[in-house]
Each structure stands twice: as C-alpha cells, then as structure tokens.
Design a binder for these strands. Structure first.
Lengths: 218, 218
DNA sequence: CATCTCATGTGAACGGCTCTTACATGAGTC
DNA sequence: GACTCATGTAAGAGCCGTTCACATGAGATG
C-alpha cells in the first residue's frame, strides 16, 4: 500500500503535499503489522513513496515520529474513555465499567496506537504534548473515580487517586498480557473483558462500592 | 567491562572458553543500561571480547539470546515468588502479600530480566522451555490463590485461576507503569509497593478474604 | 509575468547492525 | 602424533538511521 498523494489519480510531483500525515499513517500500518520494534523509518518513507531522507524534514528522528503517534494515540484514547464514561450516565457504576471495556477495546482495535503509547519505550518527556496527552487520558479515569468515591460516606471514602491508579494498572496489565494480538501469551478461561469487569467489580466491592455476591456464583 | 575469560589473569587464546555465559551476562548488562531495544548482538560480542560472528555459534540469532535471558529470568522469578510464598507461612494472607512485594522487588532489582520477560516482545513460543518457565512462575501465584480461596466457605469461593490472573495482571501493570527505572512515567502519591499492597488488600476484601475497614480510616 | 526564497524533496555517503560464508585454530580423542 | 569438530575469525551482503550538499517548485513579491 502506498500512502502517497496520488490516490486521486493525479501524478505526484517532486513535493509530496502531505508527507507528515502519510508517514504517520504508514507508521501505524507498520507498527500494527510488525510491532513497534519492527517499524522502520526507511519503510515508512518507502510506503509514502519518498526517499529515506525525506522524513527528516518532518521529524527530528525515528523516535520523534513514534512519540507523535503515541501522542495522537493518547488523544484518541482520552476521547474513547470520555465517551464511555459519559459523565457517569446512565449510572456511575455502570459507566465506570464502560470505561474498562473501552480501555480494552482500544487496546484491541488500535494495537498500533496502544503499542506506541505503552510498549515502544517512548519517553513521556520526549515531547511536552505527549505527557499532557497521557495525563489527560488518565484524568478521565481519575474523574470517574472521584465520582464513584463520592457515593461513599465521607468517613469510609478511599482516595480517588489511588483507586484510579489501581484500575489503570489492572486494565493495562490485562490489556498488555491478555488482550493484544500478541495472541498466545496465555490461554484464558474467560475473555479479557470478562476478566477486567470481574476484577473491577471485586475491587469496587472491596471498597464498599458495589453490591453483589461474594464470588463464584453469578 | 569485559566478560571474557581472562579475569583470572590468564590470557585467553583463540577459544573463549565460556562464551555462552559471557554473552548472557553481557546482554543483561546492556539491557539494564539501554533497554531491550538498545541491546545489540554486536555489542555483546565486543563486551565478551570476540568477533561479531562468534555469538552465532551459541545462539541462532539475537532473539534466541533474548529468549534465553527471558527463560532464565522466569526461573529466577519463580524462585523468588516461591520463596516469598513459603508455602503460606507464616499465614496465608501475609504470605500472599509477600508474593506481591517479591513481584515488584524483582521488577525493580532485575530490570534487565524483567524487560526480557515482559517487554522485549519475545514470543513465548520461540523456545519451548520459555513457555514452561513462564507457566511455572504463574503457577506459584496460582497455588497461593488456591490456598487462599480454600479459606472461604465452599459456596462463596471464587475461582482461584481468575483470582491469580487478577493479581498477576495488577502486579505487572503496577510494575511496568510505576516500578521501572523508566523513572518518570508518573508521579505517585505512594510507593509502588504500597500501591500494590493496598490494591491486593482491597481486592481480597472484595472476595471476602481480608478483614479491615472500607477505605481511608482504619 | 518574472523573480526570489525557502520549505520540502533527492542522492550519496558514513558508520553500525544482523546474519552468512569460507576459512583458521586448537582441545580432546584414538 | 594425527584427526576431528566445536568454536573462533575475516570479509562481505544487505539493511537501517542519520547527515549533507544540492535540486525543485509553490507562493510571495515586485
């Protein structure tokens, strides 16, 4: 597949026209196919139909491109989580579970973005916008946690930040271990979604937030 | 640092004597310094004081060396978790928390092994021994979970496999997000150990396994 | 319209990496 | 002492990241 500009039939001349975007699309394609380690600046350039030096007009180096992909990934991630939370509707507890599903959904449906965000070893500091985007994504979960915590009586209210860190870590753990196209890391007796939902429910019950039974049944 | 055989003063001749081990130690050194992506077969060869073609006498390719490091890592990991569990002594609940601490301890003190095991993208299938070693490590946690589950009345007993998957995922999530020398992924209001311990306690309480309060106060 | 400028592209080159091949060495064996 | 074969080397093909000098042409300016 070539991401050059001539998709509209017109011949592309010396200048590409939108190389920056083309490179990012190529990167997503390649990361999706071969993982973040297998992705190559030269390959992306080939895909875009330009010489291997051209990308340097748009990104300082390979890592900068990766960081940009990660940043965009976090922005999409924030949107997805936010939509799932939907300001706590129809009901905080259910909305909270929706966030969990959205987390895994994103990891499954956008493996390239997810890999760039969490597995490519991109330093969050490499781009100021990147850290911000990552923080924004986390903020969605944090806000949701605060809403849930507020349901509890003041004297038995857990710290919302801690709660969001727990859920974030559990979600990422399940995503990276069991929900990647990595495939056969391990065979599961249940889907990753069910696993996460059950885990969050147990956790919330431990905080006194979810009713329900104590284990096996249901 | 050179890992060649002449550490005992003797000059090394044409043959190294123990290149395989030397390469693995070099790999650990390099992965520890520059991450699994930065590790280089050629660098390891240089460190061992041999030509860049020599490693191929001992490992099919770079990935095979990485896989071997990962396998050894899982073996050490199994030992560490097993020692922490110590057959449930002095008391199952406390022993279970010890596993959590041992998990993070390993991630912190053996970042090179941990990276090879969980972050290098080594396929578990690349080496039959690798999958086995990984399964063995998980089995420790699974056995501990079974012991804990058995403390509950039969009709409210959660599936031990599910429980071990939850704790495994939470531990790995916290380790990979907050306990790596990656350093500044995010600022925490508490240590990774405290975070994991608190998370496991809340989770266990949700299963009806740990007593205690419902959050902030105690 | 003619010209100028500067962002964006090219080609060639450097060094480094993975991996292969043909050949060298020498430790252990008969 | 001669042989063998695991283990080493040197050289090289093909890749990649990155840089540099140079080419191109789109848009501003007169």
């Amino acid at each position: 597949m070539r991401w050059s500009d001539d998709s509209s039939g017109g011949r592309r001349g010396y200048h590409h026209g939108n190389l920056r975007e083309a490179l990012i699309r190529a990167a997503l394609d390649l990361i999706g196919q071969k993982g973040p380690a297998g992705f190559t600046f030269a390959d992306a350039a080939r895909m875009a139909g330009v010489s291997s030096a051209a990308p340097y007009r748009h990104f300082r180096d390979r890592d900068a491109l990766l960081a940009d992909v990660a940043r965009r990934g976090f922005e999409l991630f924030t949107t997805a989580l936010d939509r799932a939370w939907n300001d706590g509707r129809p009901e905080p507890l259910r909305a909270f579970e929706n966030i969990g599903r959205a987390f895994l959904d994103f990891a499954r449906k956008e493996p390239a973005y997810y890999a760039a965000m969490f597995e490519a070893g991109v330093a969050l500091e490499s781009d100021p916008g990147l850290r911000q985007a990552a923080d924004d994504a986390f903020a969605v979960l944090r806000k949701a946690s605060e809403t849930l915590c507020a349901l509890l009586p003041r004297d038995s209210r857990p710290p919302a930040l801690m709660m969001s860190l727990h859920v974030w870590a559990l979600s990422h753990g399940i995503a990276s271990l069991f929900a990647r196209p990595d495939a056969g890391r391990r065979k599961l007796p249940m889907s990753a979604d069910e696993l996460l939902e059950a885990g969050v429910l147990v956790y919330l019950r431990g905080l006194g937030l979810a009713g329900g039974t104590t284990g096996g049944s249901r």
